[in-house]
Design a binder for these strands. Structure first.
Lengths: 118, 118
DNA sequence: CCCACGCATCGACAACTGTCAATATCGACG
DNA sequence: CGTCGATATTGACAGTTGTCGATGCGTGGG
């Protein structure tokens, strides 16, 4: 299976009880984001023009070794959150809008009203 | 500090590069959700009437021991995602809409346009 | 008063994670 | 071809996590 898996994960949490399979699909994306360094990496990439950034720009923003940043970027890529493109010696990452949209829709706050049937 | 921390975490990821402090605040909430069991627990609570459910209703939906479910519910509570209320012998959880809204706003997909300055 | 029941805590253990130093790979450029 | 600079991989290690069985703690009913 491709690393760009289809995003079949996107009904709001509040819509209906999530199946074990659905949860197993979504959890890895959240896991990838559930780290301060990776959150900042995503944010840095997404807030750049074109939602794209070179690894060489990201590294100096952290007090971490190059292999560590490379590892975090790999985690984000394998979770389907970042695309990876090699241009010459450099590697550019850009955010996958579908992934962001999928996560956003998860948290659409359509809570069941108090009077409704369970 | 209260377990109901203020949610000072809510600008979209794409708006500007997240500070280390911001990331350290948001990451624990995502970490709490980054587990298939906890995702399903949240979804089950949120999709019930009033976004509220008794622990005794949640337990039988899983093939896990009672201490394990209790542990997961505690993690969600300590992350500020679920409120906990004891009524007699039973414990009821309900979702905190502010927390959901905060997470939703994180993923608002306002990516920087390709032509804009970095 | 004691028991049954719902839930929480504890202690233990295997599995996973974040980090680094060392090293490999790969492309550009003399 | 040799070297240099950017990134990836490997191996190691401490710390964290998910799970369980055993046990503790309140609450309500006989």
């Amino acid at each position: 299976m491709s690393i760009h898996a289809p995003l079949a994960c996107c009904t709001p949490l509040a819509h209906e009880p999530m199946s074990a399979d659905q949860a197993a699909q979504v959890a890895p994306m959240l896991k990838a984001l559930a780290d301060p360094v990776r959150l900042r990496l995503m944010s840095m990439v997404m807030s750049r023009a074109g939602a794209e950034a070179c690894a060489c720009e990201l590294l100096p923003a952290f007090d971490l070794s190059q292999p560590t940043i490379s590892h975090h970027l790999k985690v984000l890529h394998e979770a389907g959150l970042l695309d990876r493109e090699k241009r010459g010696v450099w590697v550019y990452f850009h955010a996958r809008p579908e992934a962001m949209a999928a996560l956003g829709s998860l948290f659409a706050t359509t809570l069941a009203p108090a009077g409704a049937p369970a």
